[in-house]
Write a protein that binds this DNA or RNA. Structure first.
Length: 261
DNA sequence: AGAAAGCCTCGGCCGC
DNA sequence: TGCGGCCGAGGCTTTC
């Protein structure tokens, strides 16, 4: 589940190669889809020394002596350094690693290899990625930044769930995290953003930051109690209410019929 | 067989 | 009627 918490753990893994020099890199046609060609990745990374790691939402940034390298992980991407994974396993997708699913990589002068493992081919490599389309990072969201999330120019605005998933508004919230935050806030995910009461907005901000802190502390490898009821016919782990599900903002959404109004 | 946690593009609709 | 922005639908891709 590469959402912001998982990508943060990938970033922490990538910290290990700070100071190392890249001797070779490669990417297949899918991983390099946003680049002019697969070989442009190989050419660009050669002889770069990694100076730092960073992250904006779900986009991992590897700073170097030259360009900034970016990695997006799609739905099933995992970062590996030699045999070490940035995460134990994904909730969705296979729970095993196969050489055939390695789509891109970097090899260092000291012999180490950093690779992108991605069965479903939706992960992407980027060079000097454009950050202008990304909102503030979800993990360090401030109250001031939060007010921009719930501020709508005119009309009722999109459903709050769709708003939370809009990466240009806040970067890093994925489908499961969005459900978890609204579950904790006790808000119906279909509520138009501009119609949230001030009490709901306060609860949303509190649930947002609390969810980030709590799950980050747990390592981001699994989500909160909301997941216990997240299946057809499931019941709310808080109050036993029936869990409802339908597409909100085009994404499968689960919420409690009792406490999320 | 159908759905899946990301991202991108396209097209319809709304308001000016 | 024209245009831009907003927003939802659909596609990508492979796996379970």
């Amino acid at each position: 589940m590469p959402e912001v918490l998982e990508v943060e753990s990938y970033r922490q893994l990538a910290e290990r190669v700070v100071g190392a020099t890249i001797v070779r890199g490669w990417a297949d046609a899918y991983a390099a889809k946003k680049l002019p060609s697969p070989s442009s990745w190989a050419r660009a990374v050669k002889n770069l020394t990694v100076t730092a790691t960073s992250r904006r939402g779900k986009l991992l940034l590897i700073e170097t002596s030259g360009v900034t390298l970016g990695m997006r992980f799609g739905m099933t991407g995992v970062l590996l350094i030699d045999q070490d994974a940035g995460i134990d396993g994904l909730f969705y997708g296979p729970h095993s690693y196969k050489a055939q699913w390695v789509r891109a990589g970097l090899e260092f002068a000291d012999g180490r290899k950093l690779v992108l493992h991605d069965p479903r081919r939706l992960a992407r490599c980027e060079i000097d990625p454009d950050l202008s389309g990304l909102g503030p990072d979800a993990l360090s969201l401030t109250r001031k930044e939060f007010t921009q999330i719930v501020r709508i120019g005119r009309g009722e605005g999109p459903a709050i769930k769709a708003r939370l998933l809009d990466q240009s508004v806040v970067a890093g919230v994925g489908n499961l995290l969005g459900d978890e935050i609204l579950f904790r806030a006790g808000i119906d995910p279909r509520t138009p953003t501009a119609l949230l009461s001030s009490d709901q907005r306060n609860r949303l901000y509190s649930a947002f930051t609390r969810t980030m802190r709590t799950l980050q502390r747990r390592g981001g490898s699994h989500l909160g109690e909301h997941m216990e009821g997240r299946f057809p016919g499931g019941h709310c782990p808080l109050d036993g209410g029936a869990m409802l599900s339908s597409a909100v903002g085009g994404r499968t959404t689960y919420w409690c019929s009792t406490h999320q109004q």
